[in-house]
């Protein structure tokens, strides 16, 4: 009995030792030399593996960063300037900075604005519905509402608003990785410059059809009238293919364009609503940030402010800068 136990223990230990020795030598022999900085760089990356940088994962991006000589074309949108600065430090290079971006959904075609003209009866994914036909409304540019973008978001920064049937971006969670932009078959989502207090003014429509057609299919479509182009003091608005576009780089958030839009397709978000703006109140508004944005997006067209107010806000904005 005792000898059985003894033999068992000895054999097992012997096998263990032998295996350990083999492993040790194999590990020595087949060791792959890797730049230790790759590990260091990977350590500071966000480890989200979202693919926002264009590489399949953070590890691959770290390899690319270490192997390349400059940061050209290499940027982690999720970690932003902070992470890139750390990476620069590890690699002993000059850090590059990029203005932070945020995803913006450029369609406001809620059921109230855009009448339903058919019933889609296929798999619940925008990709298939888009390939099949215009979607449940007659607007061939508008959001289909099956949430491919929400599905693609790895940061829980998007959700479908059940009332409007449109996706909503939660600004403070959005890392501008671009997954939703990629997922949307209609290119409705755009990455735009992030403004202080998450304020934004943009044309919430990408319909390039003639005004009458666009208007017939959706009450809040851009009809390409050009009123906003005329009123913009900074040449930030261009009109192409019956569609106005506000260049986020040139826009100074003066809020002159939104009131003149006949179809309310230019949205102002996270701006104070009150006529007289007191500094303290403004801060409170900003704190309510994301919650309020949904409200604005939902009611959308009801947003109208007088020109006087926007002027005042423009001043306060420029002073912020």
């Amino acid at each position: 009995m005792n000898s059985t136990i003894l033999i068992t223990v000895i054999t097992l230990s012997a096998i263990g030792m032998a295996a350990a020795l083999i492993l040790y030598f194999v590990a020595r022999k087949f060791r792959v030399h890797e730049d230790p900085r790759i590990d260091e760089v990977e350590e500071v990356l966000p480890a989200a593996n979202c693919g926002g940088c264009g590489y399949p994962g953070c590890r691959n991006f770290a390899e690319a960063l270490v192997k390349s000589d400059s940061f050209e074309g290499l940027f982690c949108p999720v970690g932003g300037n902070e992470v890139m600065a750390k990476v620069a430090e590890i690699l002993g290079r000059e850090a590059v900075t990029q203005a932070p971006l945020v995803a913006v959904v450029r369609c406001n075609g809620s059921p109230g604005h855009r009448p339903k003209t058919s019933v889609y009866d296929g798999p619940v994914t925008c990709a298939i519905a888009h390939a099949l036909y215009t979607g449940e409304s007659d607007c061939p540019y508008g959001c289909l509402g099956y949430g491919d973008c929400v599905e693609a978001c790895t940061f829980d920064a998007m959700y479908m608003d059940p009332k409007t049937n449109l996706p909503v971006v939660i600004d403070n969670k959005c890392t501008a990785c671009g997954a939703c932009v990629e997922a949307c078959p209609r290119d409705i989502i755009e990455l735009r410059k992030k403004n202080p207090k998450d304020r934004k003014i943009f044309v919430c429509c990408i319909n390039e059809e003639k005004g009458a057609v666009a208007r017939k299919n959706c009450k809040v479509a851009c009809i390409g009238c050009g009123a906003c182009v005329k009123v913009c003091p900074f040449d930030a608005i261009t009109l192409e293919n019956n569609l106005a576009y506000i260049d986020a780089e040139k826009c100074r958030l003066c809020r002159k364009c939104s009131p003149v839009c006949p179809t309310n397709s230019i949205l102002e978000i996270n701006f104070p609503e009150k006529k007289m703006v007191v500094k303290g109140q403004e801060k409170k508004d900003a704190k309510e940030g994301s919650g309020k944005e949904e409200k604005v997006a939902a009611s959308g067209s009801e947003q109208k402010e007088s020109g006087e107010e926007s002027k005042k806000d423009k001043e306060s904005n420029s002073s912020n800068k």
């Binding site: 339903k116 058919s118 019933v119 889609y120 009866d121 099949l132 036909y133």
Partner: peptide, 8 residues
């Protein structure tokens, strides 16, 4: 009444 649309 709205027509149903799907792939063949």
């Amino acid at each position: 009444k709205l027509l149903r649309v799907s792939y063949s």
